[in-house]
């Protein structure tokens, strides 16, 4: 479960301050599929970064599965992220010089999983997402839809409970977007908690709940 209480995120620069999150109170239960909607610059990605332990709050509390994340050190934060959270990005964020297989096995390598076990798990997710034949290809050799499915496979392979997706259909056409959302629904059936940032209402409609964010405030 994710709980944010009076969460603030303030960015300071040379002579300016931006409040990206302003007293946000939010609860997301395990197994929920939540869409976060808002205009550009409203604080959606900041919210996702904080939930994903990629950034820290400047005020308030963040509790993830009964652990108060707010005061955790860097090492513990990294460990928590590794154990619980997987990411899917708009621009896929695949490593260009690695094959599709190597990109997907990355989280397993981070966890120190042996090569035999890695092979089994990667093969499993690739077949589930119908990208098994792309094993030896490189990201630049495949389509956007296939790249995004690779990113999803990478997010799934470690078996983490929380999947955070930042505009996953942002770079895809309508057909591929629809395909992708079917995959998300499928993942959701496995009991994963999915938090998806989007500015597309049609895409957001696939979620169980929609959270609106405006000027750093959640309504």
């Amino acid at each position: 479960m994710i709980v944010l209480k009076d969460a603030d995120k303030l960015y300071k620069g040379d002579g300016f301050e931006t409040k990206a999150m302003d007293h946000v109170n939010l609860e997301i239960n395990n197994g929920e599929f939540v869409a976060v909607m808002g205009k550009s610059g409203s604080g959606k990605s900041t919210l996702l970064n904080v939930i994903g332990c990629m950034d820290r709050l400047t005020g308030g509390t963040y509790i993830l599965d009964d652990t108060d994340v707010s005061d955790l050190g860097i090492l513990k934060l990294d460990k928590l992220r590794k154990q619980k959270i997987s990411f899917i990005f708009q621009n896929y964020e695949l490593m260009d010089h690695y094959t599709i297989y190597e990109n997907i096995e990355l989280p397993l390598m981070a966890n120190g999983i042996g090569s035999g076990q890695r092979k089994t798990k990667v093969q499993e997710v690739m077949e589930r997402l119908s990208i098994a034949e792309l094993k030896r290809k490189y990201p630049k050799q495949i389509s956007g839809g296939e790249q995004q499915r690779t990113a999803i496979a990478r997010a799934l392979v470690s078996g983490n409970d929380y999947i955070l997706a930042d505009e996953p259909t942002g770079a895809l056409d309508e057909e591929n977007s629809g395909e992708l959302m079917k995959i998300f629904k499928d993942i959701h059936k496995d009991g994963k908690t999915i938090i998806m940032v989007t500015h597309d209402k049609d895409i957001a409609s696939y979620a169980d709940r929609i959270i609106e964010i405006k000027d750093g405030k959640v309504s």
Binding site: L75, K79, K82, H97, L106
Partner: peptide, 16 residues
């Protein structure tokens, strides 16, 4: 840089 960011968001520590 991007590769390191991807690694960090996929379970690698900064120490790694």
């Amino acid at each position: 840089k991007k590769d390191y960011g991807i690694m960090l968001s996929n379970g690698f520590h900064k120490a790694n």
